[in-house]
Design a protein around this nucleic acid. Structure first.
Lengths: 129, 129
DNA sequence: TTAAAAACAGTAATCATTACTGTTTTTATT
DNA sequence: AATAAAAACAGTAATGATTACTGTTTTTAA
């Protein structure tokens, strides 16, 4: 496998992602990282996000809105998606890994894991009529 | 709202979907429905799948593989995605709706529901080395 | 029978993402 | 410090799923 070489661009991307708790998309990462490096290309952002996700330094989120979101927090946790404003936030809750037992009960193959996210209206959108 | 008018194409699409338990994509629906009606267009398939999903006659599945899948069975149930062959199958298991309680525990907004699917290797792919 | 609304076929456009290409950086080795 | 192979880059083209547009055909209520 190819040895990883340092890249200023990758560092900027990772650093930016670590400042955010809102799980930005590649395009939002791109538009923000450009403030530090106006000549960075969108392809570089995508390539590095994919690379970082592949080596486990960040995680890629698919919440069904047609765009991938990225998260610098790779610890297991759940996400909430607001159907009103589209925001994606962390959801503080106990692990529900035990649902794997339930799923494995009558299944022939091998269940490695699960993907769960919750949806509804966020605090903001719920309190604005 | 516009009144729904009968369409032979829509009927074909719904009928085809009801014969399948493997949650086909729009393109697979298209390729199959063309056997009955060779002049149907892909746009018509997409439009009707979206329409049927909007009125709740079918459901649209997003299992993170970049393509939407469709299911004529709209009753609540869970899905399994094989990371080896990409197949999407139904997973017979007890409801885990109770995870909503867990999720709502410390949340400010309103949680309407959850999306969960499981992944791993299906029966076939598990037993083939 | 008629005519407005809905749906259609065919095609163009959109949008996120990936692939390609010639140039620049990184880094281990001289 | 010089060098050169590998990796990464910027910029751009291509891909693939899906949606939008347009002129024509169907459906259906009056």
């Amino acid at each position: 496998m190819a040895t990883l070489k340092y890249s200023r661009q990758r560092e900027l991307i990772k650093d930016f992602l670590m400042t955010r708790k809102d799980h930005p998309t590649a395009d939002i990462v791109y538009r923000n990282v450009r403030k530090q490096n106006p000549s960075i290309s969108l392809g570089t952002v995508y390539r590095n996000l994919t690379l970082l996700a592949d080596i486990g330094e960040i995680s890629r989120l698919n919440v069904g809105d047609g765009v991938d979101h990225f998260d610098a927090d790779t610890s297991p946790h759940y996400h909430f998606v607001c159907t009103e404003c589209g925001s994606v936030t962390d959801l503080e809750m106990d692990s529900i890994e035990n649902i794997l037992e339930t799923a494995r009960a009558n299944f022939e193959g091998h269940i490695a894991g699960h993907v769960t996210h919750f949806y509804g209206t966020c605090s903001n959108c719920t309190h604005v009529s």
